[in-house]
Design a protein around this nucleic acid. Structure first.
Lengths: 224, 224
DNA sequence: TATGCTTTTTAGGCTAATCTAAATAATCTA
DNA sequence: TAGATTATTTAGATTAGCCTAAAAAGCATA
């Protein structure tokens, strides 16, 4: 039942990254993978891994890889909770567009106060997902998520709801807006083109559009 | 018209401190004074003063003292603007009590995004004062403030409004609540006691209470 | 104005987080 | 499986922000 270790902002960023790259703790993560994601050098990652190991939030096997511990997972989920709740605040209350919030939420997620985040949660009406459709962990770090599949893998003529995006870059999000693809839309694959793997999609039982394979592989949907 | 220099969080804290201690740029501030306020050692202050000098937000005269420059004042006022707007948010929207917000606002004031703070201002309805009664600078760093005097100095039998507090410690603020003294209350000094300099005060033309000299010297009022 | 006290600065070190360059371990491939 | 390639770690610097101890400047007063 020991208290969670307290981390610096830099340590929190590394831990969040390891959480994501390991698929929530399912696989070992490589030093180079972390370096690429955090945009730093492998040597810096090695330094940091030793610190995180000492704080017992990761299991670090030299030259082999790294995974997140049980308490590390809780810490990571709390950071993710903060990040996503702040994103909801920025979009719902302040009127930011969903492609502008990443950088600010990245800063806000490091504000230290459990009281603050729980009051924010209440103020926002206990949202279940952030503006990108990603689920928000509750106070105990429990995250509920329906099975999601790539739009690219969706069975033809089956209806599914646009739940989330894999890529959150402004360029991609703005392109989705231009295409008329929004979170929560009902999508159906009408046709697949062998030649370039592009898809013909129907949106909300209405308009149909063509999207490239690259787009289809960055959109997550849940069936029914 | 040059852009404002960008400062680290630590630099921002020093600058804000210098702004306050200098009375908004009116007097020279001493190294020891800053050290006492920031709770650090004089040697650390000297180090930081050199950095702030290089960024041209202060004028630093070795062994003599330090003052804030024109651009330093703008930077300081922007930090104060952020701090006070976040305090309003914490109290008005999240339901914090006014004695709990200092520590969190201290962190939030360093979040970098002008867009964010202006949207927050709009969301809050462009408040003029924070929960302690202190005025909030506008986007251009302009601060409007009515002349404030210490309750201890208020002419007897003259009405004045409780505008602000000098001391913002939770102990003091909680004591004020217990006494029934709230921001915005109308106050009148009914009597002064020679012996211990305590005052008899009428609140909102209703109840009367006795307050010590220490309390009276930490309450700011504006006449009329 | 010389002496002593206080304030301030300098010198040298420490930690966190980063870097480059070099060394070492792991893996791939012929 | 040996050599080459890639991944990872180590070694040694750097910067920001802090520290202690010692030196220097300013001041107060006899």
């Amino acid at each position: 039942m020991g208290n969670l270790p307290s981390l610096t902002s830099a340590e929190e960023n590394y831990l969040k990254c390891i959480y994501h790259l390991s698929g929530g703790g399912k696989m070992l993560v490589s030093t180079n993978g972390i370096a690429a994601e955090i945009q730093t050098k492998p040597a810096s990652v090695t330094d940091m891994l030793k610190k995180l190991q000492k704080k017992q939030v990761i299991d670090y096997y030299k030259y082999k890889g790294v995974n997140i511990t049980r308490s590390g997972k809780l810490v990571a989920l709390l950071i993710i909770r903060k990040h996503r709740l702040w994103e909801v605040f920025l979009v719902e209350k302040l009127g930011f567009h969903w492609d502008e919030v990443e950088e600010i939420a990245e800063q806000l997620e490091h504000i230290r106060s459990i009281n603050l985040i729980n009051k924010l949660d209440h103020f926002l009406g206990y949202p279940r997902v952030d503006p990108h459709g990603d689920p928000i962990p509750n106070e105990d770090g429990i995250i509920e998520s329906k099975p999601k599949i790539l739009l690219a893998k969706l069975t033809q003529d089956k209806e599914a709801r646009f739940i989330s995006v894999k890529n959150t870059s402004p360029i991609f999000l703005q392109y989705l807006d231009k295409l008329g693809l929004h979170l929560g839309s009902d999508l159906k694959v009408l046709d697949r083109n062998e030649f370039d793997h592009s898809l013909q999609i129907m949106i909300n039982q209405g308009s149909t559009i063509f999207i490239s394979r690259d787009v289809a592989e960055n959109i997550l949907v849940s069936e029914q």
